[in-house]
């Protein structure tokens, strides 16, 4: 019964290498920019990572199932604008607005999921098209100039603190824990992994593959909506392009963390590492005085590197 466990090594090797990269980066930036690690700064990064993190978690679900969602950025901007529009800054409106917004997210996810799964169309084409439609609708609604305000309670959610810990981060932690439990412990999570690895096999094992995949898109969009609420609180304004770049960020975080784009491998912990890395990269660049545009370049380069590396690692498996 003694056989080489080469294969299990590969998985932990991957996870360890990302962790190593993260630690190296942390150490490196601590040495180069010691003042970077001021408490204020760290808290700031935690806030930012929170909304990036939540949408990245949503993206994780979709990618695990073998898909991808490029409509998150557009959806998030829509939610941001809608929040301001519907509440007009009044806290009283928040208790009913937020559920409505989450439902809107669910609806978009349903649309995405249905077209992708039932009509068997490539995910990125559909979500790209939906993104454009959402952009157009949003611009029509606001006529180019969004109006309304972000209510105080949401502001608290996005940038407030409980003691020393940002509220946003607490929400993020909560979502993280729930996601982890669902993915690792719930039957749905098991099914999702199976579908991501091999849809055909999963189907012949009796798993309702269509339902699982559609659900992953709904989850992603709902999380994007939630993330948008927090984002709104953080930036305290309604902007037509508030979430620009969130699609790259969320996918990069997922990929950097080690979740494979072909599906089936990865998870919450992986994505968290990716989110942290992205957050660090973004902020260190600003802190080092480099032009803000370098962020985009850096993210893209790191993204390419990560995919290339992980594919290389994946291909050497037995």
């Amino acid at each position: 019964m003694l056989l080489p466990t080469k294969a299990t090594l590969k998985g932990s090797l991957r996870r360890n290498s990302i962790l190593t990269i993260l630690l190296v980066f942390l150490a490196g930036s601590a040495i180069l920019f010691p003042s970077f690690y001021k408490l204020n700064n760290i808290l700031n990064i935690l806030c930012q990572s929170s909304y990036i993190g939540i949408v990245s978690l949503g993206q994780t679900f979709v990618v695990l199932g073998g898909g991808i969602d490029l409509s998150v950025a557009s959806l998030m901007s829509c939610i941001n604008v809608l929040l301001a529009n519907l509440t007009l800054g009044k806290d009283a409106a928040v208790p009913w607005t937020i559920p409505v917004l989450l439902l809107v997210g669910a609806g978009i996810g349903l649309v995405n999921g249905f077209i992708i799964v039932k009509r068997r169309v490539p995910a990125f084409v559909v979500t790209l098209g939906v993104a454009v439609v959402l952009n157009g609708l949003r611009l029509i609604l606001t006529n180019g100039a969004p109006f309304g305000y972000i209510p105080r309670s949401v502001r608290f959610l996005g940038s407030g603190k409980l003691g020393i810990i940002p509220v946003a981060f607490l929400v993020f932690l909560l979502v993280m824990v729930v996601s982890h439990v669902v993915l690792k412990k719930a039957i749905f999570g098991r099914h999702l992994y199976a579908v991501g690895v091999n849809e055909k096999a999963s189907h012949s094992m009796g798993i309702r593959t269509d339902g699982v995949r559609i659900a992953s898109y709904v989850i992603c969009s709902v999380m994007a909506a939630l993330s948008a609420v927090i984002l709104s609180g953080y930036i305290n304004t309604a902007d037509n392009w508030s979430a620009k770049g969130m699609d790259l960020d969320s996918i990069a975080a997922v990929v950097l963390g080690g979740t494979m784009l072909e599906g089936g491998r990865g998870g919450v912990i992986y994505t968290m590492i990716g989110v942290l890395l992205i957050g660090l990269v973004t902020n260190v660049i600003v802190y080092a005085g480099l032009a803000i545009e370098i962020q985009l370049i850096a993210k893209a380069l790191v993204f390419i590197l990560a995919v290339a590396l992980y594919h290389g690692l994946a291909r050497t498996k037995a």
Partner: peptide, 24 residues
């Protein structure tokens, strides 16, 4: 028709064209 509507329409056209399914 405003350019915003046109943008939304273009996205809708893409989704519509692709809805009839892509050859696998």
């Amino acid at each position: 028709v405003s350019s915003y509507w046109q943008m939304a329409l273009r996205g809708a056209i893409l989704v519509a064209v692709v809805l009839r399914g892509i050859k696998t």
